[in-house]
Design a protein around this nucleic acid. Sequence first.
DNA 1: CTGTTAGCGCATTCAA
DNA 2: TTGAATGCGCTAACAG
Lengths: 341, 341
Amino acid sequence: MSLEVGLKAVALRAGVSPATASNALSGARHVAEATRQRVFDVAEAMNYHPNLVARGLRRQETRTIALLVADIANPYYPAVARAVHDRVDAQGYVSFIGNTDGDPDAEVRVLQEMRSRSVDGVIMGTMALSPERIRSVLGPIIPLVLLTGEAIASPGHGARTLRADEVGTDDAIGIGEGVAYLQSKGIGEIGFISGPADSIPGGGRLECFRAAMATADIALDDKWVEHASGYTLEAGLDAAERLLSLPNRPKAIMCANDLIALGVLEAARDHDLHVPTDLAVIGFDDIPTSKLVNPRLTTIINPATLVGYACADALMRRLEHPDSPFGHVALPTHLVVRASA
Amino acid sequence: MSLEVGLKAVALRAGVSPATASNALSGARHVAEATRQRVFDVAEAMNYHPNLVARGLRRQETRTIALLVADIANPYYPAVARAVHDRVDAQGYVSFIGNTDGDPDAEVRVLQEMRSRSVDGVIMGTMALSPERIRSVLGPIIPLVLLTGEAIASPGHGARTLRADEVGTDDAIGIGEGVAYLQSKGIGEIGFISGPADSIPGGGRLECFRAAMATADIALDDKWVEHASGYTLEAGLDAAERLLSLPNRPKAIMCANDLIALGVLEAARDHDLHVPTDLAVIGFDDIPTSKLVNPRLTTIINPATLVGYACADALMRRLEHPDSPFGHVALPTHLVVRASA
DNA sequence: CTGTTAGCGCATTCAA
DNA sequence: TTGAATGCGCTAACAG
């Protein structure tokens, strides 16, 4: 009934058994050159293409991976997704994409879904679930790459039991550079806008910030630490409004991501504050927009493409060498001074 | 050997046959309430989740779709991807993502790949292949939604033989508004920067532009029509350099997309041209960046989220009603006047 | 209402 | 070097 030509049809027309046709095409076993050629010709003539679902069931290997992020429309992720795609595509893998909005229930649901679909690997930028929970939902087998800034805060954290590779950014470098830079300009009244209080990447960056302030020996007023309700411009604007309405407001604001920082820029405009003289603003991520806004955003470069490559490479490596030691890659972040600080 | 609990294991523990367990869980056939409850309890206790690869093979329905675009990192697509994801996710479908860079070979390759993977449907924003070619590579069965601005240039174009739904934008509306707006400001020397000469969306927009100029009764100097080498800021900058170096340059430039327009903005800066007084610039798409740059970009809104919804809805509709008439949706575009024109 | 049989399309045993 | 048989995990058809 099926209109697709299957291996059986090719074998029939080539006058061989399905097994031989399979071997001829895949090269798994040796086949007489004449036979091989004949099978190839017939397959080509009949426009045969293997059914990858059936192959996946049989081989217990689907050559699919899952890329799970909070929101593909968040400007940081597309570059990661593209980089991952390019790397795995070169190895014959295709990617499922999943958006979780950082909602723990959604994360569990989509992880379970991907497990049911027998993906060969998962790359996940979690916002809510602990690594242990992720591993437990995903089951003990499927290779997992964690895409998280916090990886570095606790290097190699439980890799043994977690059986996961970690790719992150060394946020402390860039944030340290940012604090030092502000200090060198004589600015000590530095505030920070993090993401939602319980979210992971922003929380890690906040910790980095606290550490950097301590290192720089600058007292940190806890009133100057705000939590945006999300990693969006609007949430950043709201949080900045609160910060700028304080009786004694900070002279500089560092942010957990660029969108929040863009919100701060808007808030500064609303308050008739000149950036950077009245208020210095430093973002995080260096999304494409950042070099195009006015004033151009001083920010900390989060190398999205390299992160994507590193995730894909870690996953491909584990698929080839399942028993290699688990690793964590920390890509450096760096301050890029533009016009906002 | 497999560590995953299968239906057989659940059936065994529940004391029923695999078929009954299947029916109890899926509800395909009626099962005694007591049995059903027992199967559910066992499944839950054993943490059973169906193997969707096996189900796909058996049901000849994978509940996967493919979203094929030129480049997910292009800022227009993430919003489309997110919208598609949300709609199909609600129906239990997951999305493969494919990037083709508008390369015809890559498009053929990924279409073939998706066909091999038995996706239930394809949403494709083609840049290079003709609809007929796409249909031929994809085979006659798999539902196809074409995401293309040109759909509207030739409404219902070959829908019968193509067996495809089309979702596009009515680019002529917004481009007509743009030309009329410039005319109302007394600007008649209008140039246009399209995408690569052989690419589809930019070509359609160029045609709209020519038509709008004719309607407005403005003579169009062909020297003022340029082709950018891609839909990027850099390509737009290059093309604009060529246009602005002309002995008699246009007083306004309309563009096939916003990134090209952002390149024009940079070129204008390089040439010490003040926007909009020396040079008016109008983009296309209204990507998030456009409202944040300086000067804020006057552009034509391409409702990416609505486009994504429409694509997903068209696909879901066809999956439910395979024989419904093929349709094409044209979402209106509109000029939004900001500061660059 | 439930169990048995069969097969989706392929790749891997085993045997020849 | 090749073919026949088997089963990946699930569900549909057919019996009972």
